[in-house]
Amino acid sequence: MNQIPEIPENKSKRDFLQWVLAGGVTAFLGAVLYPIFAYLNPPKQAEVEVSSVKAGKLSEMEKESGKIIKFGTKPVILIRTANDELRAFSATCTHLDCTVQFRKDFGMIWCACHNGKYDLNGRNISGPPPRPLDEFRVVIQGDEILISKKT
């Protein structure tokens, strides 16, 4: 009768093979998944750095009114106050990203989304907004209103 020869346990060899297998599988998954995740991440659009924009004519803007100006990709709110001052702030509510508006009846900047209120200096005074609105600089050249970033 033939005896089945005992196979000697070769632990280190088996361990080694297991490592190779695990490493191979990991590398394979990485090679498959990495491009997919990278693809999902939208590429940075080369944003044209805007430093100032024209915001229309002074003579066309009433006292106690406000309007939204396109500042690059972001909205900016321009306000002409009752005592004839021009102010500009970022129009993106610091709470959850809605676009704010000027409310003549409150004499305030108001966010409709959750009833957030800012005074005419952009300070958050009631409702959920956690921070004031960033201020922009307003320059008047002749009749032209120019808005630029504060540095």
Binding site: I68, K70, P75, I77, A91, C93, C98, T99, V100, Q101, C111, A112, C113
Partner: peptide, 10 residues
């Protein structure tokens, strides 16, 4: 419209 104020009633 991306450049309009949020309307009431959101």
């Amino acid at each position: 419209e991306a450049f309009a104020s949020a309307p009431a009633g959101i």
